[in-house]
Computed example of a mutant assay.
Amino acid sequence: MVPGSRKRGSTRPQEHPRGASPATPHLHGVAAPAERLLYRPEEAAATLGIGRSLIYEEIRLGRLQTVRIGRRRLVPPEYIERYVELLKCEAEATA
Rank of each mutant, 00 (worst) to 15 (best):
R12P: 00
R71E: 01
L38K: 03
E42D: 10
G49I: 08
R82S: 12
L54I: 06
M1T: 13
V75K: 07
P25E: 09
R68P: 00
E43G: 04
A32Y: 03
P13E: 08
R12Q: 06
I59W: 01
A95W: 02
S5F: 12
L87A: 15
P77E: 09
R73D: 00
E78I: 15
E15V: 08
E43P: 00
L27T: 01
I80H: 06
P3Y: 14
E58Q: 15
T47K: 08
Y79R: 13
G51H: 01
Y56L: 10
P33K: 07
Q14K: 15
Q65S: 13
G70C: 03
R72L: 11
V2I: 15
R18M: 11
L86G: 08
T94Q: 12
A95L: 15
R72M: 11
A45T: 02
A44L: 09
L86R: 14
R8N: 04
R73A: 09
L86I: 07
G70I: 10
H26G: 01
S5I: 10
I80Y: 11
E35P: 05
T24K: 12
E57A: 14
G70Y: 03
V30C: 05
L37G: 10
L86K: 13
S10C: 14
Y39C: 06
A23V: 04
G19D: 05
G4I: 09
L27M: 11
A32L: 13
K7N: 09
A44V: 06
R6G: 05
P76A: 13
E81C: 12
P77Q: 13
P3N: 10
L74W: 04
V75T: 11
S10E: 11
E81A: 15
P76H: 15
Y83L: 08
E43C: 08
G9Y: 12
R12G: 01
H16I: 06
A46T: 00
G9P: 01
A45M: 07
A91L: 15
G62C: 12
Y83I: 08
V84Q: 15
S53H: 03
V67C: 08
P22E: 11
G29V: 01
L64E: 01
K7L: 12
